[in-house]
Amino acid sequence: MELTSTAFTAGGDIPTRHTCEGQDTAPPLAWSGLPDGTRSLALVVEDPDAPDPAKPQRIWVHWVLYDIPPSAAGLPEGGTPLPPGTREGQNDWNRTGYGGPCPPIGRHRYFFKLYALDALLSDQDSPKKQALEKAMQGHVLAHCELIGTYQKQR
């Protein structure tokens, strides 16, 4: 499986428009190479460098999506419209939807993690990342990730 974005390259800078200093809209994403038997996809975007990359203390979750249909080839810029049937979990702002990079100090890494699953997870109701990961156990066929970085300009 491969996950890419036309907004930034692997390991590259996430453009300001996709952060709290810009429009705070999700970057476009595209994927390919889903394994046979994929019934749904899940996407988790997280920052493992919070609050300070020199002394990280927690993983900050920026976006949680699940039950993405395998017929979808990606997500458009802004993240909407979501593919039919896609459900949203809660990020660490305790809301659904994308929350862009907004590091308080230093350059942070943002991991866009995509999972191919052999099941739908419809019985979940706006789960946090931990609940989604628990529901995914035993159902992950493959996964991939795309990492971007960001440091505040102001």
Score class of each variant (00 low, 15 high):
93 W>F: 08
76 P>S: 12
10 A>F: 00
85 G>W: 10
152 K>P: 00
107 R>Q: 08
125 D>P: 00
147 I>Y: 00
152 K>Y: 00
80 T>Q: 15
84 P>S: 12
117 L>W: 07
137 Q>D: 09
51 P>C: 04
37 G>I: 13
18 H>G: 01
65 L>G: 08
11 G>R: 06
5 S>T: 09
131 A>Q: 15
72 A>P: 05
48 P>E: 14
110 Y>S: 12
73 A>D: 13
104 P>D: 06
144 C>V: 08
25 T>D: 11
10 A>S: 12
49 D>F: 00
32 S>W: 06
121 L>A: 11
43 L>I: 06
81 P>R: 07
141 L>R: 05
122 S>H: 11
62 H>Q: 14
139 H>V: 14
101 P>D: 07
61 V>C: 11
115 Y>L: 06
40 S>I: 11
45 V>Q: 04
77 E>F: 00
139 H>G: 11
118 D>A: 03
12 G>F: 00
2 E>W: 00
95 R>L: 07
105 I>H: 07
7 A>P: 08
143 H>Q: 15
150 Y>Q: 12
50 A>N: 12
118 D>G: 11
85 G>R: 03
1 M>Y: 09
104 P>M: 07
54 A>D: 15
19 T>A: 00
123 D>N: 05
148 G>T: 05
135 A>P: 13
107 R>T: 14
146 L>S: 05
27 P>A: 06
18 H>C: 10
107 R>V: 02
123 D>I: 01
7 A>E: 15
107 R>C: 06
121 L>C: 09
141 L>K: 02
31 W>Y: 07
57 Q>K: 14
14 I>C: 09
23 Q>W: 08
96 T>N: 11
117 L>H: 03
55 K>N: 12
13 D>C: 04
50 A>Q: 09
67 D>H: 05
28 P>E: 14
151 Q>M: 10
48 P>Q: 08
14 I>N: 02
22 G>A: 04
108 H>C: 05
151 Q>D: 11
112 F>I: 00
63 W>D: 15
91 N>R: 04
48 P>M: 13
54 A>P: 06
16 T>R: 11
9 T>V: 14
150 Y>T: 11
115 Y>R: 03
30 A>S: 14
20 C>P: 00
131 A>F: 08
45 V>H: 01
141 L>H: 08
13 D>N: 12
121 L>V: 14
73 A>W: 05
83 P>S: 07
121 L>W: 13
15 P>W: 02
101 P>K: 03
122 S>K: 10
72 A>T: 09
125 D>I: 10
37 G>H: 12
92 D>R: 06
101 P>C: 10
125 D>R: 13
89 G>R: 13
46 E>N: 03
141 L>F: 06
57 Q>L: 14
147 I>S: 02
104 P>C: 04
15 P>Y: 05
74 G>N: 09
30 A>E: 14
149 T>P: 09
5 S>G: 10
56 P>Y: 01
21 E>N: 05
29 L>D: 06
6 T>G: 04
77 E>C: 04
147 I>G: 03
9 T>R: 13
62 H>D: 08
95 R>T: 14
123 D>K: 10
27 P>L: 02
104 P>G: 09
66 Y>M: 07
132 L>E: 11
118 D>V: 11
98 Y>I: 06
71 S>R: 10
153 Q>V: 03
43 L>T: 07
102 C>Y: 15
